[in-house]
C-alpha cells in the first residue's frame, strides 16, 4: 500500500520524512551489525512476497505482509521496509523517492505496533490456534492502520482526497482478509519450525 508521486503537499512529505528518518535511525541502532545480512534477507523476502498474487474472490490480490514484517523484525522493520520501498521506487517506480518517507511510515509504523502487541499477548496462549488468531488479527489490523495513515496523509491535502482515500481503503479490504489469513498460517509455521524467529514474550525476555 503506497501513495504515488505528485499527490502529497510539502507538510505531509516533511512530516513523513522526519518520522521515517527517526524510525530508521532507531531501527538501525537496535540492529546489531552482524544482523545486517539477515535483515537484508528478510527485507528481500518481504519484497518478493509483495509480488505474490493470491486468488481471492473473482480476482486476485497481492500481499503486503507488513504485519508479519513487524512481528518478525520489530524496530528493524523500519530500515528493512524503507530499503524495500526505496528499491521498488528505483526499480519499478512503485511509490517514489519524494514520497519514500510517507510510504515508509505508512507501512512500518503499524508493523512496529503489531510487534509490541504480539509480544504482550504471545505468552497468554501457546497453541497453534492462539498464534494463528493473534498473528492473523494483528496482520489485518496492521493493514487497516496503514490504510488509516494513508487516509490521514491524503486528507491533509484537502477534503476532496477523502473520497480518493476511501476508494483506496475499500479496494484494500480483500487484501486485509488475505493478509491476515496468510500471516496467521505463516506464524503457525514459524512456531512449529523455528519458534526463535517469533519475538520472545515479555515474560520470557524478563527471565
Amino acid at each position: 500500500m503506497h501513495v504515488c508521486e505528485g499527490v502529497l503537499g510539502w507538510p505531509v512529505l516533511a512530516a513523513g520524512g522526519a518520522v521515517a528518518a527517526a524510525g530508521v535511525a532507531i531501527g538501525l541502532r537496535r540492529m546489531q551489525v552482524e544482523d545486517t545480512p539477515k535483515t537484508a534477507m528478510l527485507a528481500a523476502v518481504f519484497f518478493v512476497a509483495s509480488l505474490v498474487h493470491v486468488p481471492f474472490g473473482p480476482g486476485s490480490v497481492h500481499l503486503i505482509l507488513n504485519g508479519l514484517a513487524g512481528i518478525v523484525l520489530g524496530w528493524a522493520a523500519f530500515p528493512a521496509l524503507a530499503v524495500a520501498l526505496f528499491l521498488q521506487a528505483v526499480l519499478f517506480q512503485f511509490g517514489g523517492l519524494a514520497v519514500l518517507g510517507v510510504n515508509t511510515v505508512v507501512m512500518a509504523l503499524p508493523g512496529v505496533a503489531a510487534y509490541y502487541v504480539f509480544r504482550a499477548l504471545y505468552g497468554t496462549g501457546r497453541g497453534p490456534m492462539c498464534v494463528f488468531v493473534l498473528a492473523g488479527v494483528l496482520a489485518a489490523g496492521t493493514v487497516l492502520c496503514s490504510g488509516l495513515l494513508l487516509t490521514g496523509a491524503l486528507a491533509w491535502g484537502g477534503r476532496a482526497f477523502l473520497r480518493v482515500a476511501g476508494g483506496i481503503v475499500t479496494t484494500h479490504m480483500p487484501v486485509l482478509v488475505a493478509d491476515g489469513l496468510v500471516t496467521g498460517a505463516a506464524a503457525v509455521f514459524l512456531l512449529k519450525v523455528r519458534p526463535d524467529v517469533l519475538p520472545p514474550s515479555r515474560r520470557e525476555s524478563r527471565r
Partner: peptide
C-alpha cells in the same frame, strides 16, 4: 491456487518457509 482457505494456508506456509530459509541463509552469509 484457488480461492480457498487451503490455498491461503499453503501460501502462508510457503512465506514462512521463505522466512526460515532466508534466516538460515542470512546466518551463513554473515
Amino acid at each position: 491456487p484457488r480461492f480457498s482457505m487451503h490455498t491461503l494456508r499453503t501460501i502462508g506456509y510457503a512465506v514462512g518457509e521463505l522466512l526460515v530459509r532466508g534466516m538460515e541463509r542470512g546466518e551463513r552469509v554473515v
